[in-house]
Simulated assay, not measured.
Amino acid sequence: FKTLVTKGAGGGYYVFDIPVAENLDLKKAAKAVGEKSIAMLPQKELLPLTGYVHGGCSPVGMKKQFPTVFHETVELFDTICVSAGKIGAQVEVAPADLMALLGAQTADITVE
């Protein structure tokens, strides 16, 4: 799963984790977090906001905990891999454990 960081129309930041081969549907994602609209965070803002570089962003250990949503298919797997916080490093974890740690929810958030 890849980790994407967005900014809502209301100024809040949101984290979405989706299968690597999928694309985030911004309208579905906005609905999932109760925002009018959201946009991808510009790459130059990622490091100062999260502490992670583009390509090494993990849903765990950001400078601040942001609302996090996983694609609903996450529940189909015994384990998933997410970034371990640097480019090329991955960590394998049970989705239920990761979601509990993050207080995350699931939703249909990818392009059909």
Rank of each mutant, 00 (worst) to 15 (best):
F1W: 09
T3I: 11
T3G: 11
V5E: 04
V5D: 08
V5S: 01
A9S: 06
A9T: 03
A9L: 10
V15W: 04
D17R: 00
I18D: 04
P19H: 01
V20R: 10
N23K: 10
L24P: 12
K28F: 06
E35Q: 12
S37M: 05
A39Y: 03
M40S: 01
L41M: 13
P42G: 13
P42Y: 05
E45P: 04
L47D: 06
P48D: 10
T50P: 03
Y52V: 11
G55K: 06
S58V: 00
V60P: 07
G61K: 06
M62C: 05
Q65H: 09
F66W: 05
H71M: 01
T73L: 15
C81H: 08
V82N: 02
A84Q: 09
I87W: 07
I87R: 15
G88E: 15
G88L: 14
G88Q: 14
A89K: 06
V91W: 00
V91T: 15
E92P: 11
E92K: 15
A94N: 09
A94Q: 11
A96I: 08
A96W: 11
D97N: 12
L98V: 13
M99V: 02
L101N: 13
L102S: 05
G103T: 12
G103A: 08
Q105M: 14
A107V: 07
D108L: 12
I109P: 07
